[in-house]
């Protein structure tokens, strides 16, 4: 059996890191994602936008103490895609016998 192709949207360093962080929480601030992934604001914004376009995450912009705040949250579609990615990853580690 051929190995399944890994979802290219998730098989990239920063997007995978963001999705892994969001998988464990209800929602997270942009600043939290930036700190934990050690990325630049510009690059993170671009990658978040890609995830948003795929409906993997929801981005909400609001104000907190008069400062703009961006909150990210994983959608059900995002969670399914993430779980599927992890499942496929397992197959690479322990290839099934044909």
């Amino acid at each position: 059996m051929a190995l399944k192709e890994l979802n290219p949207l998730l098989h990239s360093q920063l997007r995978l890191a963001v999705m892994s962080l969001l998988a464990g929480v209800k929602e997270a601030d942009f600043s939290f994602l930036k700190e934990e992934t050690n990325s630049t604001a510009g690059n993170l914004s671009v990658q978040l936008q890609k995830l948003k376009e795929a409906d993997y995450i929801e981005i909400e912009k609001s104000f907190k103490n008069n400062y703009p705040q961006t909150t990210c949250k994983m959608t059900n579609k995002g969670l399914s895609a993430f779980n599927e990615y992890v499942e496929n990853l397992k197959e690479y580690l322990v290839p099934k016998k044909t």
């Binding site: 890994l6 098989h11 990239s12 360093q13 920063l14 997007r15 995978l16 890191a17 892994s20 962080l21 998988a23 464990g24 934990e36 992934t37 050690n38 990325s39 690059n43 671009v46 990658q47 992890v86 990853l89 690479y92 580690l93």
Partner: peptide, 20 residues
Amino acid sequence: MEEREINISESLKIIQSMVN
């Protein structure tokens, strides 16, 4: 962290460290 292609073991490391 940048936007770049990764291999399988890097994938696992990323997931593990972020989940932690």
